[in-house]
Each structure stands twice: as structure tokens, then as C-alpha cells.
Design a protein around this nucleic acid. Structure first.
Length: 486
DNA sequence: CTATATGATTGACT
DNA sequence: AGTCAATCATATAG
């Protein structure tokens, strides 16, 4: 919408008003010509008469004048100008003028005045409310934070999508800015136009009956015209916001797969906490952070806590539904975690045993071959102690076999990036490995599915509502602490 | 194109 | 509030 359009529209309405005035004039003329006395009290003689008498002459004169007034618009500009000048100089002009003013005041305006009380437009109110709710209208500032808050509140209160909201917020701010500049422009244009019209009318009021009331009315008309334009602006702004919103929601629905690394991290956690795969809030945060850091797939693709929750929700349900399908994956991650655990243990051993025979590499970087060659014995002992020690219910049938199994499952010499794993997770993991390799549950042989510790007969995890102890914020990754929730 | 995988959403439940 | 289960909608593999 441009200013020129506004002006054009307003000019239309102005023209319409002038037509109205012409009609009024006509009706006044009609009254006079019909021979009735006019309310002003000035007796008008009958229109037809003869030149002979003074009265007749005056009648003729007035008739002429009225005729001239009424036909003035049919004439060319120059002609009309000349006529106008003539009329203005006519001796009857002041009297006629005041009469016309009075009549007009008492007829046209009184009729119109009544219907001009405009009640607040419900549609406009709705638009205003919506803009206010969206944070487009209303108090400025906060860098669109008010808008974001409103949007967040309106979008169903999704927990933590402030990060992915940034794009939305930027767009909304843009809309908001455009809206405000346009609004200001209209306001200014409206004021300019109003003063212009008022000046025009004031000037015209010297030659044509225009009361202050009428000017007021004209101003009202202009304002209404502009406010209807403003409404269009508000409407299109609302539309824009809606489109933005739907696009935003679409974008959220349009999913992107997580990166391999992120999935790996999540899977590692899941399978290492198979007995109770319910990360606490802090754990979720930690995982989200880790995934986001690990992920180098481009800007704006961070993984949020709610996404982690989604992932775990989906994972649990899908794992439970078809454990067999996840067997391979479970093995893989179990082995990985087991090796990690072993590495962690190795590191611990190395740290505690300063006189360890040959330890050229750090424990974290050690490969399995080295692991076995270097200090397999000590680690075996340690792991075996770990399992029997902190998880009394679980006993290893054959520690040596277990390590062989791990070796075979982990032929790609996985180098654990994450060493931190609690004892419970190690138990889970190793038990899983054992179930595959040492006939723990005969899972591979028959269709009997591997039943992880914690998954009860109903298919639900025991103490599912109790979050397992997690990656402690103080200890951070690499720490080993016990999870004895089971 | 079809089947499967997977992230997100929704409603019920506790 | 967190979870489950069902479902939607898209991504991806074949």
C-alpha cells in the first residue's frame, strides 16, 4: 500500500462527499423554486414573473442566480470561474449564503450526524488482539523477546525450543519492524492529508457553505479511510505472521536425521543404561550438549533436550517392541561400552600402579591388542572385582571368555572416546555381550529375545520412573561412579 | 516407487 | 511432568 493509493482513496471519499453537497444544494434549489418560503425567514418570491415590477425582477434575478449555481459544474473551468466571480460579487450573495448555510446545517448534517457513531470494529479488535498476542503490536523493545515469549506461549508451550526459535524470532522482528514503519507512514500521511483537506475546506468555506461541523465530519471520514487502510496492513501482517508460524511449525515437523555421531552417543548411553534407560534431566542436557558439540553438520542443527527425550522415548518403545531387531546394534554398543569400561579400568589401574611394567600409551588411546598384551591380567582381575563387587546379584561365569568375546565383537579396534561409564552400565553391557557369546539367555539360538535386566515381563522397565544416576555435572565424562539403582 | 527408519506430535495415563 | 503408545510425515535405502 502506498501513500498515493491512500490519497486516491481519500480523494474518492472526498469527491463522494462533494456530490452529496451538490445534492443538498439541488434540494435547496428545489425548495426555493417550488415557491415555499425558506426557513431562514427570508421570503423568496415565486420564480416566474414579469420584468415590469421590482419584485418580478428580483424573482427573475434569484432564479437566474440559482440556475447559474446549479449549472456551474457543467461549464468549462474558465467559464465557471468567471461565473463564480460574478456570483461572488452579486449583491444577494451574503444573504443567500447565510441562508444556504443555515439550511444545510439543519438538514443534511443532522441526518448524517446520527449514524456516524462508529462502534469499535470487532474485526479490527480481533486483529489488534492477535498482533498483540504475537508480539507484533504492543510495547516495543527486548529485541523481540516479548514476541518470542508470546510465540512460545502460543505454540503450545514446547519446553525448550529457544534455540530453534531464533530464526523465527528474527523473522518476526522483521515483520514487526515493517509493520511499525508502515503504520507510522500511514499515520503521517493521514495527518498530512487531513491538514491539507482542512485547509482546502477552510478556504472553500468562503465561497461555499461549509460549517466547522462539516469539516469535522470530513476529518472523520479521512480518518476512517486511513484506519481501514491500517486494518488492511494489520490484516496482511497477521497473515504474514501466520504464514511464518506455519512455516516454522512445518520446519519443525520436517525432520532431519541426527548425525551419525549424535546417534552413536545416544545409543551408547541407551545400551549402557539398558537396565534403566531413563536419563535424568541433567543427563539429557549433557547428552544434548555432547551431541551438539560432536555434531559438525552445520549451523542451527543443535540437539535439544526435548529432542533427546524424544529420541529416548522412541528408542525405548521401539527397542521393547522388537528387541530382536536391535540385537545387532545392542551388541555393537555393548561391546563398545565394554571396551570403554575396560579402558577406563586400565587407565585407573595405570594411574594407581605407578610401577606398571610397560605402558607407553595412555590408557585412553590403547588398542585392544595392547590391552591384552600389556596388562590383561590386571584388568581381568579388576573387572571381575568390579562385577562381583558392586553388583552382587550378577556373577560372571567366565571372565576370560568374556574378554575373548569382547575382542571378537570389537574387531575394528574401537577407540573409546567416552571413557565414562558407571558400573551398572558396564554390568548391563557386559551381560549383554555375554548373553550373545556365552549363552547367557540363549538369545541368538532361538526366538527367545534377550531380556535385559530391568525389563520386566510386561515389557516395561522396572522402576522406570526413577531416573538412573547420570553423568554427574561435577565429575563430568570420564568419571566412574556406581549406579546401584538395581 | 516402495519399504523401512526415524524424528516429532498427540492423547491418555499415572 | 514424564512416559507410553499410536501415529504422522519425512528421510533414506533398495
Amino acid at each position: 500500500m502506498s501513500f498515493s493509493i491512500c490519497v486516491a482513496q481519500c480523494t474518492d471519499s472526498l469527491a463522494a462527499t462533494m456530490d452529496d453537497q451538490a445534492r443538498i444544494m439541488q434540494s435547496i434549489g428545489g425548495v426555493s423554486l417550488a415557491g415555499h418560503s425558506v426557513q431562514g425567514g427570508m421570503p423568496l418570491p415565486p420564480p416566474h414573473g414579469h420584468d415590469g415590477t421590482d419584485g418580478d425582477g428580483r424573482k427573475q434575478d434569484i432564479g437566474d442566480i440559482l440556475h447559474q449555481i446549479m449549472t456551474i459544474t457543467d461549464q468549462s473551468l474558465d467559464e465557471a470561474q468567471a461565473k463564480k466571480h460574478g456570483l461572488n460579487c452579486h449583491r444577494m450573495k451574503p444573504a443567500l449564503f447565510s441562508v444556504l448555510c443555515e439550511i444545510k446545517e439543519k438538514t443534511g448534517l443532522s441526518i448524517r450526524g446520527a449514524q456516524e457513531e462508529d462502534p469499535p470494529d470487532p474485526q479490527l479488535m480481533r486483529l489488534d488482539n492477535m498482533l498483540l498476542a504475537e508480539g507484533v503490536a504492543g510495547p516495543e523493545k527486548g529485541g523481540g523477546s516479548a514476541a518470542a515469549a508470546a510465540a512460545a506461549a502460543a505454540s503450545g508451550g514446547a519446553a525448550d525450543n529457544s534455540i530453534e526459535h531464533s530464526d523465527y524470532r528474527a523473522k518476526l522482528t522483521q515483520i514487526r519492524q515493517i509493520y511499525h514503519t508502515e503504520l507510522e507512514k500511514y499515520e503521517q500521511a493521514c495527518n498530512e492529508f487531513t491538514t491539507h483537506v482542512m485547509n482546502l475546506l477552510r478556504e472553500q468555506s468562503r465561497t461555499r457553505p461549509i460549517s466547522p461541523k462539516e469539516i469535522e465530519r470530513m476529518v472523520g471520514i479521512i480518518h476512517r479511510k486511513f484506519s481501514s487502510i491500517q486494518m488492511q496492513l494489520k490484516q496482511s501482517t497477521c497473515e504474514a505472521v501466520m504464514i511464518l508460524r506455519s512455516r516454522f511449525l512445518d520446519a519443525r515437523r520436517k525432520r532431519r536425521n541426527f548425525s551419525k555421531q549424535a546417534t552413536e552417543i545416544l545409543n551408547e548411553y541407551f545400551y549402557s543404561h539398558l537396565s534403566n534407560p531413563y536419563p535424568s534431566e541433567e543427563a539429557k542436557e549433557e547428552l544434548a550438549k555432547k551431541c551438539s558439540i560432536t555434531v559438525s553438520q552445520g549451523v542451527g542443527s543443535t540437539i535439544t533436550v526435548s529432542q533427546v527425550s524424544n529420541w529416548f522415548g522412541n528408542k525405548r518403545i521401539r527397542y521393547k517392541k522388537n528387541i530382536g531387531k536391535f540385537q545387532e546394534e545392542a551388541n555393537l554398543y555393548a561391546a563398545k561400552t565394554a571396551v570403554n569400561a575396560a579402558h577406563a579400568a586400565a587407565a585407573a589401574v595405570q594411574n594407581s600402579q605407578a610401577n606398571s611394567p610397560t605402558t607407553p600409551n595412555s590408557g585412553f588411546q590403547m588398542k585392544d591388542e595392547e590391552f591384552q598384551l600389556d596388562s590383561a591380567e590386571s584388568k581381568n582381575t579388576l573387572l571381575s572385582n568390579m562385577f562381583t563387587g558392586s553388583s552382587g546379584s550378577f556373577s560372571l561365569p567366565n571372565t576370560g571368555d568374556m574378554f575373548l568375546s569382547m575382542q571378537s565383537l570389537n574387531g575394528d579396534s574401537y577407540q573409546g572416546a567416552q571413557v565414562g561409564a558407571n558400573v551398572q552400565s558396564q554390568v548391563d553391557t557386559l551381560r549383554h555381550v555375554i548373553s550373545q557369546t556365552a549363552g547367557y539367555n540363549d538369545a541368538l539360538a532361538g526366538n527367545t529375545m534377550y531380556s535385559p535386566h530391568g525389563l520386566n515381563a510386561n515389557g516395561g522397565w522396572q522402576d522406570a520412573r526413577t531416573p538412573s544416576s547420570v553423568i554427574s555435572p561435577t565429575e563430568g565424562p570420564g568419571s566412574v561412579h556406581s549406579d546401584t539403582s538395581n
